[in-house]
């Protein structure tokens, strides 16, 4: 499989065969050493970073993290919704990649989607409500995070079975925001990544290209959105585990710096373990879809589709 790097960002393959075998066969001593990197005693003193991190962890605690844990339980009772949710999130990630949105936008879209699922019931017989929810959550996240926000119709050019009028999406936007109590500024794992990296290393040169590390970590974090089991972990836990996961691939260096005493070592271990299981199993599923799938329909086709959808979207009033 090949990509045209001048058109689309390339996600590097994290799992060459040698590294994969190293990961699979890590013994318990190595595991213990790896986690000591996070919780060893630290003389590192950066009070600004420290207070920022403390504020983030407090905000994270105040936000309704417990609720998304319940979503995992609820989803397991409805097999069809697990599949429908994954399909919806895959769609969000494709549009995200097409427009080269920030990683935060992808994560926030899924966060809004999950939180809305918690408070509303969907029936299996209709597919369009989840599609409308996907468009709406992506639109809201883009409006929160991006410099350039595509028109609502343009957001729907990628593999959309339904095309919703802007007015319909706007009504859904208001419904979603009311459901989320207008609290759209969610703490994400990305808020922690740079802070954790600066704690994990003494000098940037040790790690070569920092932006490469960040992009790998971002890719792992986005992949967690697709796996329901990660819902039980807090953003800071996901960030810590993702960074450990990524740096284990790249650098065998066990500096003993402490990320933060408020972060649970057990949860990070559990999250890390889940990453190992899920992401290795899914290594064949590349995040970036084939280029041909990204090509937008011609303007004429879009207009025809819009005209056809006008009647059905009228019929699908909320």
């Amino acid at each position: 499989m090949s990509f045209d790097s001048s058109n689309h960002p390339i996600s590097p393959d994290l799992y060459c065969s040698e590294v994969t075998s190293e990961v699979i066969h890590l013994d318990s001593d190595d595991e213990a050493l790896k986690f000591n990197v996070l919780w060893g005693d630290s003389d590192h003193d950066d009070s600004d970073d420290e207070s920022i991190l403390l504020n983030l962890l407090e905000s994270e605690h105040n936000q309704v993290q417990e609720q998304t844990k319940f979503l995992g339980q609820q989803l397991r009772k409805k097999t069809w919704l697990i599949n429908a949710r994954e399909e919806a999130i895959n769609w969000i990630l494709k549009v995200h990649a097409y427009y080269s949105f920030k990683p935060e936008t992808a994560y926030l879209s899924v966060d809004y989607f999950n939180r809305f699922l918690l408070s509303h019931t969907f029936t299996q017989d209709k597919a369009w409500p989840l599609q409308l929810l996907s468009v709406t959550c992506l639109s809201l996240a883009a409006k929160m995070e991006e410099s350039k926000v595509p028109l609502l119709l343009d957001l729907q050019v990628i593999e959309s079975r339904f095309l919703f009028k802007p007015k319909t999406v706007q009504r859904m936007e208001l419904l979603v925001m009311a459901s989320l109590k207008w609290r759209l500024r969610t703490i994400t794992p990305f808020d922690f990544v740079h802070l954790f990296i600066s704690k994990l290393l003494c000098s940037a040169s040790t790690w070569g290209d920092l932006s490469y590390i960040v992009s790998l970590v971002s890719d792992v974090i986005i992949r967690t959105c697709l796996v329901m089991d990660f819902l039980e972990f807090s953003p800071s836990t996901i960030a810590a585990a993702a960074l450990l996961w990524v740096t284990n691939q790249c650098v065998d260096d066990k500096k003993s710096y402490c990320l933060h005493k408020n972060i649970s070592i057990e949860m990070v271990k559990k999250c890390y373990k889940l990453m190992k299981q899920k992401l290795i199993i899914r290594r064949s599923e590349l995040y970036w879809p084939k280029i041909s799938q990204l090509l937008p329909r011609s303007p004429t086709c879009v207009l025809d589709h819009a005209a056809a959808m006008q009647e059905s979207s009228d019929a699908h009033k909320l």
Binding site: K143, M144, L151, P166, Q170, E173, L174, M177, W182, R183
Partner: peptide, 12 residues
């Protein structure tokens, strides 16, 4: 284009 971004950001 739906609810303006500045309203969403400020309220949140």
């Amino acid at each position: 284009n739906g609810v303006p971004y500045w309203i969403i950001r400020e309220i949140s």
